[in-house]
Design a protein around this nucleic acid. Structure first.
Lengths: 322, 322
DNA sequence: TTGAAAGCGCTAACAA
DNA sequence: TTGTTAGCGCTTTCAA
């Protein structure tokens, strides 16, 4: 059923190498080219990527490691990465690590055996050690060692922007609600930006900072809200946290933006044509994806350029601010 | 850097074939096994999947073709498929077809070159022709020819269930709002189930059935709602449509479940630990994923069993019904 | 139980 | 410009 290059060569009356040249776009005599093309079409020939990869040690596949594909932030990011790679004739292999260090490691091994050309990773566990392996690697939102390039949104500025926006919209009593991961990551800058900006203006900020994994999240938020009833401007570490806060607040009879205003972080949307879920600091996911891919290509081609790309965030109105 | 089987064989002082046997779990003498294992560990040997695939014509990779990963329905489905495959030691390759027939076809070609062992597809364009190719294929939610097995939720029963639920919760004036795809698919049974069940009870149903791609969706819904102000029980073809209806209704000053009740279809959640977005008929995505994988394995092993699996739906309260 | 050897389909170096 | 050929790293038959 499946034609091989040899069969094409025979039908076209040329040598194996010539077919290979045609397939790979190397210049051959026009008449030869036609003969080969005709044979290829007649046989519906498709080169075998495995044979090719065995020879070249390339797959033209890039892996994306994410905690879970079932989360709008990661699925949107994957969407943009796929688009960007696709335009460069690369394929994307998505790895669902399940927020599980062991599975991340398994994937890493598997990827090596499967000759992926490079990896883009959003990983929250400590895989520095393995990552330093041999494969080109670009990290998102997380800073490993100096050697590993990474792309991130401007988290600090995002925190500032949230503060400024809330200020501008008239909030007076501020709170930050977030979670702390076991492995330090860039999200702490969100809090710092928020906090510092408000301090500059002479305001203080109540903080609810919970260590992950968080138990009784709703309960903790409820207590926090009850203890600080004056709060009217909330910034959360991400949109999901913001949503949870809103649910709890609603059970307490508070509705935004009237009773309080809230700004999340991430810019979650459920699909390309949907709106923002709450008012939020938007990470430029598409640009981050493009930057990550471009950076990875640089690493793959040994073009050692910059090692850190910080992209600007923006505020988007989602109905929970005035 | 990377060790080959030959190097392992040399270090262990055995033949190439013996190493291959150990790697593939074929029985060898205990002492030989140890020697080989030691050498494997010493060299950190990992078999090259490309060389293996070239020989065996297998990749242990299954492809999932979906319109877009950036949609909670598909990303949840992908999540469950990945889990199920992972437990069977298969890898998942996700293909973002962009609701674009051409890209679907390109993927199909690519997948063949890349030796995927089988395909699970949720495709809304007409790829019957290509699908009939050689690769084991299981379709979701869409019925191709008799030869292609498929898995679907019980759409008709879902429509009935929506009708029954709305009836039970006191609605009196019913509407169905949906879109019609150019390529007929199983969603029309949702409408039929809803309609027939209500007719049995002596009710009539207003219908807003728009041909895709839909222009001015909000506007059409608004007009429909204004022309039929008595409506208090709405069933939509899916959750996204339900969400849009809710937005439009809100702009008209109507809030569920007080002013009207609404039930969607799909059971969208944004992540594993989030709730349902609106009251909805839930597709059993996890079971569908499991069934699809099991069915695909049957096809791959030529075990020709059933060709059609229909899974039961259920109602889930999401705050837009009383 | 094991080793030797053929060959999967391709690329790339070398010759012609 | 083109054909020939040697492997890439593995699996699998065939002999031993």
């Amino acid at each position: 059923m499946k034609a091989t290059m040899k069969e094409v060569a025979e039908l076209a009356g040329v040598g194996l190498g010539t077919v290979s040249r045609v397939v790979n776009g190397v210049k051959v005599k026009e008449s030869t080219y036609r003969k080969v093309q005709d044979a290829i079409e007649a046989l519906h020939y498709q080169p075998d990527e495995y044979a090719r990869g065995l020879k070249t040690n390339k797959s033209h596949i890039i892996a994306l490691i994410i905690p879970t594909i079932w989360h709008p932030f990661f699925s949107e990011f994957a969407y943009h990465v796929e688009k960007e790679l696709s335009s460069r004739h690369y394929k994307l292999f998505i790895c669902n690590a399940e927020e599980n260090g062991e599975k991340e490691f398994e994937y890493l091994q598997m990827l090596e055996k499967n000759k992926v050309d490079g990896i883009i990773g959003i990983t929250y566990s400590d895989i520095d050690q393995y990552v330093s392996s041999n494969l080109p690697f670009v990290s998102i939102d997380r800073h490993f060692s100096e050697k590993i390039p990474y792309v991130t949104a401007d988290n600090y500025r995002g925190g500032q922007l949230a503060a400024e926006t809330l200020l501008e919209k008239g909030a007076k009593h501020f709170a930050y609600i977030g979670g702390l991961n076991r492995f330090e990551n860039e999200t702490i800058y969100r809090k710092m930006g928020f906090y510092n900006r408000l301090e500059e203006e002479g305001y203080s900020v109540k903080k609810l900072d919970m260590l992950e994994p968080i138990e009784d999240l709703e309960c903790k938020i409820r207590n926090f809200l009850l203890e600080n009833p004056e709060i009217d401007g909330i910034f959360t570490v991400n949109d999901f946290m913001g949503l949870t806060v809103m649910e709890v607040a609603q059970s307490l009879g508070k509705v935004p933006p009237h009773d309080y205003q809230i700004i999340g972080f991430d810019g979650l949307k459920m699909a390309i044509d949907k709106g923002y879920i709450l008012s939020t600091i938007v990470q430029p996911l598409e640009q981050m994806a493009q930057a990550a891919v471009a950076l990875l290509m640089d690493v793959m081609e040994q073009r050692d350029e910059k090692t850190r790309i910080v992209l600007p965030v923006s505020f988007a109105e989602g109905g929970t601010t005035k």
